[in-house]
Design a binder for these strands. Structure first.
Length: 276
DNA sequence: GGACAGGTGCGGT
DNA sequence: ACCGCACCTGTC
């Protein structure tokens, strides 16, 4: 993909594989604001502002090199879309619709916490809970709050997580923060997805779907297909019979292999935006 | 007022 | 292993 590193950020010169609306609204991220002229994104301790023009996008960030990695700019998404083309009319429509999707390199701990909060929940509320979490525990970093560190999160008790609106997930959060701080190694980058999923699922509040989201968004493991309510509609529209979510995911991963995560993102975005 | 939200844990078979 | 159900909470 064509882009340039600038002093204060990045210049994206290929609108065909970078669309900030697609990237932000395909369900991978919660900490952003999307306005007409400017988008703001917070990732761990990286803050980016993004301006879209007819022929280019400009990313303003305090760390251009980190932003380059974060937005996965080195990857050619035209190859991914080509690879997924011609398999199913729904997927063809989905890749056309969400042509500018990119899967971000997000922080594993932030993903674990965020997706525990996401379970059986809706997006506006998830965003609110996470923002309050960051505001209360995260470091004020000049205009935004960083995602809290494990140390910061472990200083809070279950009552705190209830107070920010986490509901029954408060217990999951306190327990999981404890695990992450004490006996859980979050370095799963070199571990195969199956084994990594098993380990993640030993965390309280992490089931199959949440584990797959963590693997995809936190570790960029693309041989997973997170089965949420939309993905289940997708599965049925592919003509498959009802089955446990675990089996649905397996079937789709058998179908798409290493491209599963990408396929899921295009389809999820297409379905949700069109309320199919 | 019940169903629904980017499901999961838990107890009973 | 495989169901079935309860669950915080805001919104439609």
């Amino acid at each position: 993909m064509r882009y340039r590193i600038l002093k204060e950020g990045l210049e994206i010169l290929d609108k065909s594989q970078f669309n900030i609306r697609h990237i932000l609204e395909c369900g991978q991220i919660f900490r952003y604001s999307l306005e007409k002229d400017c988008c703001k994104i917070v990732a761990k301790n990286l803050f980016s502002r993004l301006y879209s023009y007819d022929d280019r996008d400009i990313i303003i960030s305090d760390n251009a090199i980190e932003a380059e990695k974060y937005f996965d700019l080195a990857r050619d998404y035209t190859l991914i879309k080509e690879h997924l083309k011609g398999r199913h009319t729904l997927l063809d429509a989905a890749t056309d619709f969400g042509y500018g999707i990119r899967i971000l390199y997000q922080d594993p701990v932030e993903m674990i916490i965020s997706f525990i909060i996401s379970a059986n929940n809706n997006i506006p509320r998830i965003k609110g809970i996470i923002e309050r979490l960051c505001r209360e525990l995260g470091k004020e970093s000049g205009g935004y709050y960083a995602f809290p560190t494990l140390g910061e999160m472990s200083s809070a008790d279950e009552a705190f997580y209830k107070s920010i609106g986490a509901g029954y997930r408060a217990r999951y959060l306190t327990e999981t923060v404890k695990r992450l701080k004490n006996d859980f190694d979050v370095n799963l980058y070199g571990i195969p997805s199956d084994e990594a999923r098993k380990r993640l699922m030993t965390l309280l509040g992490v089931g199959g779907k949440v584990a797959d989201c963590i693997l995809l968004f936190g570790y960029h493991k693309t041989d997973v297909f997170p089965m949420d309510t939309w993905s289940k509609k997708i599965y049925f529209d592919f003509g498959f019979p009802d089955a446990p979510a675990k089996d649905m995911a397996k079937r789709l991963v058998d179908m798409f292999g290493d491209m599963s995560g990408y396929a899921q993102q295009y389809l999820y975005y297409y379905y949700r935006e069109n309320q199919r």
